[in-house]
């Protein structure tokens, strides 16, 4: 395999792992617990910025970019800091929005929060370098390992895969347990869950924070790979790419989240990023204006969501209720009807 091909494949693989992590976190919130978090991408972004600024060196007056907290922290501290920062932010946002607000208001507040976060990061240039964003974020252990770029990239892919596997196991630990069952009950009818003694505010807050930490870590793994991060990378529609992945893959199904991430953000968006900008069609030379492919991609994402909500709202891999009850329960399944 050529080096270029290997670069391409390893890049795609790393993107896949990162997207799987992100989709798993949102699926836990949306699919399992029924929390509408239209600001999910903000928690990814906060993790990415946190990892970026703590691993960059201290800012100095003549620097080409300006930011807070430059600390040159070594691996793996930036990732831990990213998870912690997103978790704390989730706690604050959750305490404000999840406790008292009606759920439709919550949804609106989250969407507005997403837009406001972009505005703030863009305008407050001293915080994370404004619209230009941060660049030259150090890659973890790059100097210490001393590997050639391609080999380093494969090592990074393995590292990202490891974190993704851990995330998967952690999320599955929740979904395949009495906790997961209680969360799904809360999603189906929160008043009835409360009437059975479940503290729904605490449960929502818990899952909001857990999902936020996962989002933050996925952002950190992403920024340490591409080494740059700017407001353009996390506009609010990005949350809907994740939502589309969940709707396509299957809400409240962890394997569905994996497949959704493979199909929507990776298969659908990354793959088309390499379409030619000019080509011959029936003998005519066609030049696409820059941004056309992006625009059509978004149209396609929108259509994909509509098509799935219409024809297969349960997704490719539907939720499987009752699957962790003991064997005897499954054995008696045939008795029904």
């Amino acid at each position: 395999m050529s080096d270029a091909m290997q670069f391409y494949l390893s890049t795609l693989l790393i993107y896949l792992f990162i997207d799987v992590m992100g989709v798993l976190g949102l699926n836990l919130q949306f699919g399992v617990a029924g929390i509408i978090n239209f600001a999910y991408i903000v928690f990814v972004a906060v993790g990415a910025y946190t990892a970026a600024v703590v691993s960059l060196g201290p800012d100095f007056p003549g620097n080409f970019q300006h930011y807070l907290f430059g600390a040159s922290w070594p691996f793996p501290l930036p990732i831990l800091a990213a998870g912690a920062a997103s978790g704390v932010l989730s706690l604050v946002v959750g305490l404000i929005s999840l406790r008292r607000l009606r759920s439709d208001y919550q949804a609106m507040v989250m969407l507005v929060l997403s837009l406001i976060a972009t505005l703030t990061a863009t305008n407050a240039t001293g915080l994370v370098n404004g619209p230009a964003g941060l660049a030259n974020v150090p890659q973890p252990l790059f100097d210490q390992l001393g590997l050639p770029p391609l080999e380093y990239q494969w090592v990074y892919a393995i590292w990202a895969g490891l974190l993704t596997a851990l995330t998967f196991l952690f999320v599955r630990g929740i979904t395949n347990s009495p906790l997961g069952r209680t969360l799904r009950a809360m999603r189906d009818n929160d008043r009835a869950a409360a009437a059975l003694g479940k503290n729904i505010t605490a449960l929502r807050l818990l899952i909001f924070v857990v999902g936020g930490v996962i989002a933050g870590i996925s952002g950190a793994v992403f920024v340490e790979f591409i080494q740059a991060w700017s407001p353009g990378s996390w506009l609010y529609p990005e949350t809907f790419v994740f939502l589309a992945a969940i709707i396509v893959g299957g809400s409240a199904n962890n394997w569905g989240a994996v497949v959704g991430a493979l199909l929507v953000p990776v298969g659908f968006l990354e793959a088309t990023r390499f379409l030619p900008q000019d080509f011959n069609l029936f003998g005519r030379h066609v030049v696409l204006f820059s941004g056309l492919v992006d625009a059509l991609q978004w149209v396609a994402v929108g259509l994909l969501i509509l098509v799935f909500l219409w024809f297969r709202p349960q997704g490719l891999f539907p939720e499987r209720p009752g699957r962790f009850t003991p064997r005897a329960a499954i054995a008696s399944a045939g008795k029904g009807e």
């Binding site: 439709d104 929108g302 969501i305 509509l306």
Partner: peptide, 30 residues
């Protein structure tokens, strides 16, 4: 009518938002 509920509907409207906005972009250019 097909039974999509409040949040499903929010997602439907967002999908329409993405579609309308980007069709406008594709037609009128940036």
């Amino acid at each position: 009518r097909r039974g999509t509920r409040l949040f499903g509907m929010i997602i439907v409207t967002i999908a329409m938002s993405l579609i309308i906005q980007n069709v406008l972009l594709a037609v009128f250019r940036p």
